[in-house]
């Protein structure tokens, strides 16, 4: 269970990215967060693993209050929460396997990780994660040589290698073309359904959101404008979230047909 309680984030310079947000996400749910850029989607997701600290209010992940953790406890929390990024954030110059093993950093002794002495268990786990996203054959290839969709699958594998209970995905398909976007979304859905990992995904495209989400949270100006099942989110709801009428840019398939 993830619980936001009056969560507020104000950045230096006075921009309020989250404005007294109250949200409860039960375990195992697949939640899609929609909103325009600058609506606070990224901030909401990064508040869960403490990459962005709250200005006021609280976030709880399970029984842990993110704001009250020591550095060491925060690292332990982050190890328990996997994250996937818009630009994949892989180290281009090293192998896919090494990138996935980054997900194990918090679980191995520091001196061993410095020398790169991964145990057989760690490598086995990384390989299994790669198998979940069906890209294990590329394990020893440099990440730079993969296509965008393949890189994002490696990003998912890295998060899975953490054996997380929560998965955060920040605009995971914004850098990908439509067919690849669907493929990545299906992998996220599969991970959520088969491994029961609570999943929070930021999306810009409302048709993708409607297709994959159990539940949609709409943000505008840091406030929750809509919170309900994906099936209930019709065009009216989206127009309310976006504060304007919908355009071709807001849907993935329209873009594909251009």
């Amino acid at each position: 269970m993830i619980r936001f309680d009056q969560a507020t984030v104000t950045y230096r310079g006075g921009v309020t990215a989250l404005d007294h947000v109250d949200v409860e996400i039960p375990d195992g749910e697949f939640v899609v967060i929609v909103g325009l850029s600058g609506a606070g989607k990224s901030t909401l997701i990064r508040a869960v693993n403490g990459l962005v600290p709250l200005t006021s209010g609280t976030v709880n992940v399970g029984d842990r209050d993110v704001g009250q953790l020591t550095k060491r406890q925060l690292r332990a929390l982050r190890a328990d929460v996997g994250m996937i990024f818009q630009h994949f954030n892989l180290v281009d110059r090293t192998t896919v396997l090494n990138n996935v093993l980054m997900g194990r950093l918090n679980r191995v002794p520091s001196w061993r990780s410095m020398l790169g002495w991964w145990g057989g268990d760690e490598v086995e786990l990384a390989m299994q994660s790669l198998e979940v996203v069906e890209i294990v054959d590329k394990a020893y290839i440099r990440a730079a040589n993969l296509s965008g969709g393949q890189q994002q699958r490696v990003g998912i594998a890295r998060a899975l290698a953490q054996q997380p209970s929560v998965l955060l995905a920040d605009e995971p398909v914004a850098s990908l073309d439509p067919p690849t976007s669907h493929s990545v979304m299906r992998y996220l859905q599969k991970v959520n359904r088969e491994l029961g990992i609570t999943t929070l995904v930021n999306l810009h495209f409302l048709d993708l959101a409607r297709e994959y989400a159990d539940r949609i949270i709409g943000l505008r100006g840091g406030r929750v404008m809509f919170d309900g099942p994906g099936s209930a989110a019709d065009e009216k709801v989206f127009e309310k979230i976006y504060g304007r009428s919908l355009t071709a840019d807001d849907v993935l398939e329209a873009e594909a047909s251009l």
Binding site: L51, L74, R75, H87, N89, L105, N106
Partner: peptide, 15 residues
């Protein structure tokens, strides 16, 4: 990006 990813997976500064 990769630095943020390492942070998000709970790595220490040295890691």
């Amino acid at each position: 990006g990769p630095i943020e990813a390492a942070d998000a997976s709970g790595a220490t500064t040295l890691q």
